[in-house]
């Protein structure tokens, strides 16, 4: 006789605090938070992990994770993470940064942290817009994209082209793992989780700088519904920011997780 017993397929990771996030409904910042929390749970790193929060929508990230966190000045998260990692080399140190924080004001810090091969992990959320300040043009804004500071669409003649951070950082010798993933459907979210896992594995093995760029949605400032925003990532953002592995240390490439 068969007896049915409930089995938990999925539950909230313990590295994620119980506090309700301030993110807008459907914002994939929450998905990125959840994936990091799941990876830290799987690798049992929660007790020794120190996160560095940026400035931007994710400025309150320290409230949403149930492990140690510090808040950095705008764009300076990789510099702060460098100091923490050098003083506490046995701890796992990661930064969580948006595109305004990492690709605009913090461009110097991220470039030099990668060039020095600092053994830190960076989770880079690319949503092509400044979310917190009201949807201004970011360095990653797509050509022709309407934002509050480019109301006629981003004109490449006067405003230039978007910056592809994963490609740029992969050219630096200090980088051990640089990939781009997207958060727009369940399949890609699974791949993103695996990439975050491998980025932390890179750090645990001391193989240098690791960065995961995640294409993320901003339904509020894109003025789309949450479901349409995910479609926008697939249709508009992925052609400009192709998904892929830009630099993978051979030792990490062989790893099966």
């Amino acid at each position: 006789m068969a007896i049915a017993e409930p089995k938990i397929v999925y539950q909230r990771p313990t590295s994620l605090a119980t506090r309700v996030t301030h993110y807008c409904p459907g914002c994939t910042h929450g998905v990125a938070h959840r994936l990091i929390a799941e990876v830290l749970d799987e690798m049992e790193l929660r007790e020794k992990t120190i996160g560095v929060a940026p400035v931007g929508c994710s400025v309150f990230a320290y409230n949403y994770f149930d492990h140690d966190y510090v808040e950095a000045a705008h764009g300076r998260a990789p510099a702060m993470a460098t100091g923490i990692k050098r003083m506490l080399p046995k701890n796992t140190v990661y930064t969580y940064q948006g595109d305004g924080d990492l690709a605009s004001i913090g461009m110097a810090e991220i470039m030099h942290a990668a060039a020095r091969g600092e053994n830190i992990t960076v989770v880079f959320i690319n949503n092509a817009i400044y979310g917190m300040t009201g949807g201004q043009m970011a360095p990653t804004t797509l050509p022709g994209m309407v934002t509050t500071s480019s109301p006629g669409g981003r004109d490449i003649e006067s405003m230039g082209y978007p910056v592809r951070m994963a490609e740029i950082l992969s050219t630096l010798d200090g980088a051990g793992y640089v990939v781009r993933r997207s958060l727009h459907d369940p399949n890609n979210i699974r791949k993103a989780k695996k990439a975050i896992r491998l980025a932390f594995e890179t750090q645990e093995r001391g193989l240098g700088f690791s960065l995961v760029e995640l294409l993320s949605s901003c339904p509020t400032n894109w003025k789309l519904s949450p479901v349409d925003a995910l479609q926008f990532i697939e249709d508009k953002m992925i052609p400009m920011f192709p998904l892929g592995d830009y630099k993978v240390n051979p030792e990490i490439g062989k790893l099966r997780v």
Partner: peptide, 15 residues
């Protein structure tokens, strides 16, 4: 997997 707020717990009947 797609929930941005980790609001869902999923159960399945195991025989």
């Amino acid at each position: 997997i797609v929930c941005p707020d980790a609001a869902l717990t999923v159960f399945r009947e195991a025989k």
